[in-house]
Design a protein around this nucleic acid. Structure first.
Length: 345
DNA sequence: AAGGCGGGGTT
DNA sequence: AACCCAGCCTT
């Protein structure tokens, strides 16, 4: 039996029942694929349901504000996905009369839709014979065919896409594509796959050569940058605070936070006032205290944010202040959301 | 060709 | 602590 038929057989016997497998609606498939980029099924699932409830069709999503879309996306990470999701919904509604493109090339044109996602939507919705190559597929192909070209090198990306094209089942592309990803996620797992009971173990090069643990090959170790964040949490006598929208090319673009002072090193409580009070450009304050003596270390993929929250009490009423009850309405990073949840005022 | 971009689960 | 997750975009 061929590689693709073994995948199809395994899939029919082991596939999970997932909501986006019950439909061919391009809107729902597109939504699920954007949510699932670099995201586990279990983590994305509640977001998928919440988005469909808030935005049943692409029209509701297009007419929402970016702030509301980001708020619903809060906690999922990689927030450019949410911004692109919103922008693409508006393109589809305004330029394509609410209809998604039906070809790989047409889909690839959409913001936030790359090679994988275009292939996924085209094959799942329209049976276009285009192979998907995600992290699961890289692993399955690298092991079964014994390929040690780095999967994140341009040569590797090209090689695996062509290999995937050669071994796909063009007649059952929808099930085949979902099947090979599911196979990678459950059977050919990254750590300790159960090769003894694998339906592809007889032809697997990695298993034969004892290379299961060393394939696939991936280069470029990410190194972590350490940053020191000092958040200024103003509170006036009416329990109003100040929140700002993050701008620029840094992390968390368009999300909200308290006024931020970033420093080269950790700032101690004794030094805080003399270091910063003179250059307070926002508002004067009468007293302050440090919310957390030990910095909270918020870990991103390539940054560790050592964070201190400074509570600044002020007697005069803040201009354009935000009532504390309202701060939960803004889209904020998890670091800020956790703090808001913890602070008792 | 390389780096930036989140948050969470698993080992 | 390291690795990975239904990747994409910019430089």
């Amino acid at each position: 039996m061929s590689f693709s038929h073994k995948i199809l057989d395994w899939y029919s016997a082991h596939k999970r029942k997932l909501p986006w497998r019950e439909t061919r609606d391009p809107y729902k498939i597109w939504l699920s694929e954007i949510i699932l980029q670099q995201t586990r099924v279990a983590q994305g699932m509640p977001y998928y349901h919440r988005f469909l409830e808030a935005f049943p069709t692409v029209h509701e999503l297009a007419h929402a504000s970016e702030e509301n879309v980001l708020k619903l996306w809060q906690g999922l990470g990689y927030y450019s996905r949410a911004r692109n999701l919103h922008a693409t919904a508006q393109i589809v509604v305004e330029q394509f009369k609410g209809e998604f493109p039906t070809t790989y090339e047409g889909l690839k044109f959409l913001k936030g839709v790359g090679d994988y996602t275009a292939s996924a939507i085209a094959s799942f919705c329209f049976d276009v014979p285009e192979p998907v190559v995600d992290g699961n597929v890289y692993r399955v192909l690298a092991r079964y065919f014994g390929v040690d070209i780095p999967i994140n090198s341009p040569a590797g990306i090209k090689y695996f896409k062509e290999l995937a094209k050669e071994v796909m089942d063009t007649e059952n592309i929808r099930d085949y594509n979902q099947g090979i990803m599911e196979f990678g996620a459950i059977q050919c797992a990254p750590k300790k796959p159960n090769c003894l009971l694998c339906p592809l173990n007889d032809g697997c090069v990695a298993l034969k050569d004892n290379k299961v643990d060393s394939l696939p090959v991936k280069t470029n170790k990410t190194k972590v940058r350490i940053r020191h964040f000092n958040y200024l949490v103003y509170l006036d006598e009416r329990n109003q605070t100040i929140m700002e929208k993050r701008k620029g090319k840094d992390i968390w673009q368009n999300l909200y936070q308290f006024p931020l002072l970033e420093s080269e090193k950790e700032i101690q409580a004794e030094a805080f006032q003399q270091h910063f009070k003179s250059e307070m450009v926002l508002e004067p304050f009468e007293s302050y205290y440090l919310f957390n003596t030990e910095p909270i270390v918020h870990k991103l993929s390539h940054q560790h944010l050592h964070t201190k929250f400074w509570i600044l009490k002020t007697f005069h009423n803040l201009e354009n202040g935000t009532p504390w009850d309202v701060v939960t309405k803004f889209p904020v990073p998890v670091l800020i959301a956790d703090f808001i949840r913890t602070l008792k005022i």
